[in-house]
């Protein structure tokens, strides 16, 4: 069964550019505070589909449109053209650990973030212990998040996210921080989720992870799909990017 279908999806942004302006234009933009802007395609005619039980990896250089793609699928951004179909509950994890409130304790953060990702108060209460244990942060329940390391924050955010019962998980560079043990543990959790029927898309620069866990690999370049396929995509990507 297809969980996500993207058909010719494009997204453009207005971005600021420095142009040669005459003095009048310079004064106008200084007064109005507006810079000259131009259209920039972050995604251009992207099409692919994701089935249930599938783990899809997205690779590409910085600025190739990976995060934009994730935000489009999770409906955080609105597409400009094309069609998107998705079925089931989507859980985006795009810089989720940055959304934690640094001045609140871990306990408060679990409840707040839990509600934000769509869990009910009771559900969080029931899963609270398991969330803390999974993240391996048992001794820090009343510690404020600003005293956490990046890895600890990432672990906490990941733990909250995978405790939701979602059908589609979108993970943006969640394996870049955190130690090897946790990386392995979280990848295994995702694999089990997929086996039970979830669809998973993740973005990472860790090509070994991609090779090991993904059934389908998408290579994005300048907002377009350069290649889509199996492990051979990684080899080609490696060749081109040294």
């Amino acid at each position: 069964m297809e969980r996500i279908i993207l058909d010719n999806v494009s997204k453009k942004f207005w971005i600021g550019v420095k142009k040669n302006q005459n003095s009048l234009q310079q004064i106008i933009s200084l007064i109005s505070g507006r810079e000259p802007k131009k259209n920039f395609f972050a995604l251009k005619e992207v099409s692919f589909s994701v089935h249930e039980k599938e783990i899809v990896g997205i690779i590409g250089k910085n600025g190739s449109g990976k995060s934009t793609l994730m935000r489009i699928i999770s409906k955080i951004y609105k597409k400009d053209s094309g069609k998107i179909f998705s079925q089931g509950k989507i859980l985006p994890m795009i810089g989720l650990y940055l959304a934690l409130n640094p001045r609140l304790t871990m306990k408060d953060n679990i409840f707040l973030t839990g509600l934000l990702v769509g869990m009910s108060q009771n559900e969080i209460k029931m899963k609270y212990k398991s969330i803390v244990e999974y993240a391996g942060l048992g001794n820090f329940e009343n510690t404020k998040i600003y005293q956490f390391s990046e890895g600890m924050k990432q672990r906490l955010a990941f733990s909250i996210a995978i405790h939701t019962d979602s059908d589609i998980y979108l993970l943006d560079e969640v394996f870049e921080v955190g130690d090897e043990d946790f990386k392995k543990k979280s990848a295994e959790t995702l694999r089990r989720k997929a086996e039970k029927g979830a669809s998973i898309i993740f973005v990472t620069h860790d090509l070994e992870m991609i090779k090991k866990y993904c059934n389908k690999i998408i290579w994005l370049e300048k907002g377009k799909i350069k290649k889509i396929g199996g492990k051979e995509v990684v080899e080609e990507y490696k060749k081109q990017n040294g």
Partner: peptide, 9 residues
């Protein structure tokens, strides 16, 4: 609230 960029709520 930059959390708007991370989650759809």
């Amino acid at each position: 609230n930059s959390v708007i960029k991370s989650l759809n709520f």
